[in-house]
Design a protein around this nucleic acid. Structure first.
Lengths: 188, 188
DNA sequence: GTCATCATGTAAGCCGTTACATGATTGC
DNA sequence: GCAATCATGTAACGGCTTACATGATGAC
C-alpha cells in the first residue's frame, strides 16, 4: 500500500520524505496522512531493495519555487528518485490482482495511478470493484428484509445502501467512459 | 473497536464466538467480517478481564429455531454473556472521546450503539463527526483550486467531495432529528 | 463414510501507529 | 536568542490478518 503510493509519487517527481508525506496526505484523501514512523522505514526498505535511490547531490530537485523561494539546503534533505527496478516494482504492485480484496483505500490508490495501467487492466480494475460493490448491495438488500435491531442500525444500513448505489452509478459512468475512449482509440 | 462491538452485541443476546462473528459482519457493514484469529483471543481477553463469562450450561441460549431446529449441542459451543463489569466497560469504551479520531468505522460502530448513549452524548457524537467531515471538505475545496495531476486523481477528488457533502447532509438530518426528539422529550 | 459446515483455538507476521530523540533552518 | 517548522530517524506496541491445527455434527 504505502510502497505503491511512494513509488507512484516518485514516478512524477523526485521527493524527500517530508514532502512525500504531504503528497500522500492529499492523494489518499485528506486527513489520511501516513506517519513518519511508517514512511521512513518504508523508504529505507525500498532503498535497500534498489527500488529508489538518494539523488541528493543535484540540489533542490523537487523544488517548488513559489513558497520555498531561495532555498538551497542541499545537505540535510534526502531527496529520493525512482530506479528502473522501482518502476518495475511499481507496475507489479499496481497490477497484482493478488491484493484484489479491493477495499476502498486499495481501490482508490490504484485508480489514482490508473494512467499507468493499460486500458484493459484499467477497465478490469473498475469492473472488479463494481462486482464487489454489487455483491455487497445484494447482501445488504437480503438482510434489509427482516427489520434490524434499533433505529440507528437501520439508519446506518440505509445510508450504506444509498452510498453503495451511488458508487455503483459512479463506477458505471467511469466504465462507460473507459469503453468509449477505447473505441475512439481503435477508430483513430 | 472489536471489544466494543462484542460487548455491544452481547448486551442484546448471549452468543458464542462463531455466531458473534456473523453478527459483527453485518453490523460493521457487509463484507467487513472480522477473522476468528482476532475474535477468539479478544473473547479470552474479555473473559480474563471479567467483562464476559461463559454461560454454557443453560443450553441453547442464542438459538434461532428456524435453521438450527432441534439442535441441542450444549457441550462444544461456548456461549458468552456480558457481566456487570462488562456493561461498565462497554459504556466506558462507547463514551471515551479519547478515541475521538472518529474515522468511518469507529463512528459507524458507535452510532450503531447510540441508543445506549444519553441524548447529549449522542448529539455530541454526531456533531464531532460533522465537524470532522466539514473540515475535510474545506481542505479538499482548498486543494481543488489548483488543477491536480491526472484525470483519475481529479475524478477521485470529485467523488470524495460529493460523498462528503452527502454525508454532511445526512448528519445534518440526524442532528435535526435528535434535537427535535430532545425538545419533544422536554415538552412531554 | 465422507463432505460441508459448525466451532474453537494458536502462531507468525503485516502494516501501520504513537511516542520518543535529535538536530538544522528560518522568522521575529 | 527563541520558537516554529522542517527534516530524519528509532522503539515499542496495537490490532488485525493469514495460515495452521483440531475436532464435532449433520446431511446425503
Amino acid at each position: 500500500m504505502l510502497e505503491l503510493a511512494v513509488l507512484g509519487l516518485l514516478k512524477e517527481h523526485d521527493l524527500h520524505g517530508y514532502e512525500l508525506r504531504k503528497r500522500l496526505g492529499d492523494l489518499l484523501g485528506t486527513g489520511a496522512a501516513v506517519s513518519f514512523g511508517s514512511l521512513y522505514p518504508a523508504l529505507s526498505k525500498l532503498e535497500a531493495a534498489g527500488a529508489i535511490r538518494v539523488v541528493t547531490p543535484p540540489g533542490n530537485a523537487g523544488g517548488h519555487s513559489a513558497t520555498m523561494a531561495g532555498r538551497v539546503p542541499g545537505r540535510k534533505r534526502k531527496v529520493y528518485g525512482i530506479t528502473t527496478a522501482g518502476s518495475a516494482l511499481f507496475q507489479q504492485l499496481l497490477t497484482e490482482r493478488r491484493s484484489a480484496p479491493l477495499d476502498e483505500r486499495s481501490f482508490s490508490l490504484r485508480l489514482a495511478f490508473a494512467s499507468y495501467l493499460s486500458p484493459e487492466l484499467r477497465l478490469g480494475l473498475l469492473e472488479r470493484r463494481r462486482t464487489l460493490l454489487a455483491e455487497r448491495l445484494a447482501e445488504l438488500a437480503a438482510t434489509t428484509g427482516k427489520p434490524r435491531g434499533n433505529r440507528y442500525v437501520q439508519l446506518l444500513a440505509e445510508r450504506e445502501r444509498d452510498s453503495l448505489s451511488r458508487d455503483l452509478s459512479w463506477l458505471d459512468r467511469l466504465i462507460t467512459d473507459e469503453r468509449a475512449m477505447g473505441r475512439l482509440a481503435v477508430h483513430n
